[in-house]
Design a binder for these strands. Sequence first.
DNA 1: CTGAAAGCGCTTACAG
DNA 2: CTGAAAGCGCTTACAG
Lengths: 337, 337
Amino acid sequence: MATRDDVARLAGVSSSTVSYAISGRRKISDATRERVEQAMRDLDYTPNAFARGLAGSRGGIIALHYPSSTRGYSATEFEYVSQTSARARLRGYHVLLWTGAADDVDGLRGLVSQGLVDGVILMEVGLNDPRIEVLEASSTPFTMIGRPQDPAARTFVDNDYDAMARLAIDHVAGLGHHQVLFLGQTTRPLDRGEGPMARTRRALEAPARERGVRLDLVEVDNTAASGHAAFEAYLALTPRPSAVIAFNEAALAGMAHACALAGVRIPDDLSVVALSLGDDAAELMSPPMTTVSPPVGIIAEYAVDGLVGLIDQRPGPAMHALVAPLLTVRASSSTAP
Amino acid sequence: MATRDDVARLAGVSSSTVSYAISGRRKISDATRERVEQAMRDLDYTPNAFARGLAGSRGGIIALHYPSSTRGYSATEFEYVSQTSARARLRGYHVLLWTGAADDVDGLRGLVSQGLVDGVILMEVGLNDPRIEVLEASSTPFTMIGRPQDPAARTFVDNDYDAMARLAIDHVAGLGHHQVLFLGQTTRPLDRGEGPMARTRRALEAPARERGVRLDLVEVDNTAASGHAAFEAYLALTPRPSAVIAFNEAALAGMAHACALAGVRIPDDLSVVALSLGDDAAELMSPPMTTVSPPVGIIAEYAVDGLVGLIDQRPGPAMHALVAPLLTVRASSSTAP
DNA sequence: CTGAAAGCGCTTACAG
DNA sequence: CTGAAAGCGCTTACAG
């Protein structure tokens, strides 16, 4: 591999001039720059990333922490990972994928103390997320997809739960549904799903009231088997709901199957709107599910760009971005019977 | 941050002794090692990754190339990514997630020429994959998940298509199905899905013949809409198949929906076995699909361990690993009508 | 069993 | 507008 010295020699300049020609951190005459660039092309030169990271203040790598124990939205979560990766690349950063457990703070501390990464993006942020403390203790720039109980001056991007709830309620109310089951998820304090679940539940209240929609909350675990239990709960409700707003992906799958077995037709007998469900997952289900979900690309963009801003120490207020979700109507929702 | 010199000073040894105490590359007296380790603990010392990568021969980072334009097995593919990441960490490597397009060989070349990564794992390997040439030209160690037309002496791990086909045929034949639809996927030469599709089709032939199973091949695009077309094709077949072996995830979802709409019950009227489908995706579908799929953890293990072997230049023959898939019976398959 | 020193390939003040 | 040189924090022959 060619080094910077090789380039300098070929171009007939000093090696620092080559560096400055690359970084643009000082004026270089056009003639000199031209020769340097020619030499780099001739030698097929690529700067060494380790040397750059060691000598400079910036290494060009960010870590994406996707905790290995998730609440199970795998297809959906993966879109976040790949979109974040794509955006980071656009901004000139490599992505180190970190899949340690969410509570493995020692692992995270070890990672950042190696000096390898310029910053971290946290996924699956809990209400009281211990990773925040670790990153702040080491002065590591970070952004969050999701947010803790009290984000304070920290930078995050999150789903706009109010907008999501309003879209979902408007959709079902507009179809004439007034009795709606909210298929929630059981969470324990400190669960990472606790925040989204609590925020969704609360956000549904006002629009439901305004639109005259009565909500029955059924909370079950995030498994297909629990979806069958949810179906039993649905049957026991009076008056029986004509629509479901589903927070719980795996349980929704189970419930859809239970419906099919029992002859309850979706959407003829029961309409379904799934929240925060990825397009791929929605299309796999039978019938394909109407969703209200945040645009993943936008979220990834905010997360990466926010982090890059922090790394570059651009002044400005902490970014608190709430992204409005989109309604995608598929085959699972129709007018009330 | 503490440096190696700080540790050396506190322990009262030379800095090279600290290095050797860490790497274990030469004998250190117990007393000395003890003092070094104590000093590292006292200072909360972590070696700098950039310095290590620059000075040493190994940087401790491998790249995982997950091409951004996939044939769409997102939930399934994500399991590969996260399992590979977990395994790499166990072997002491960080994972750089690379999501450039599969044909962006310049991007890949740029990545490896930075000297950042010790090796690369390729996903979604095509029959004639241009990435191989790039990596070999730069002498970058790499392993493949999947394999090209002629793997020659290159290291790969792949699905055992023969075993997969046999399991699937045995399952449906054992349930009494003799007329079976193979839901394949249209591919063009150089498609990355071409290899798996061709290998699956061929692998089905012998066991089908042996078990007296007649196969009708229906090839459609990897979309839900095509699944409806596949359903029409199914209706037109005489004699009508009583089972489906599905290679095509998205089309299977569409076909399942078409079945529901037309009153064709799965599995009562039509049994389904999905190939290479991840557990999460299988559970999302209605009904949950019986699958014959490779154990992702094992594949990730082979890919990572094989790559580490190449990086460490451990001698030995090229690893050609074929992993036997597992049959997971869910609600989509039952005895023939 | 341990130390002094060269070198990895860059960035960036310091000089001119 | 450009160059000579220190320094980033390690690894690893070279000596003893």
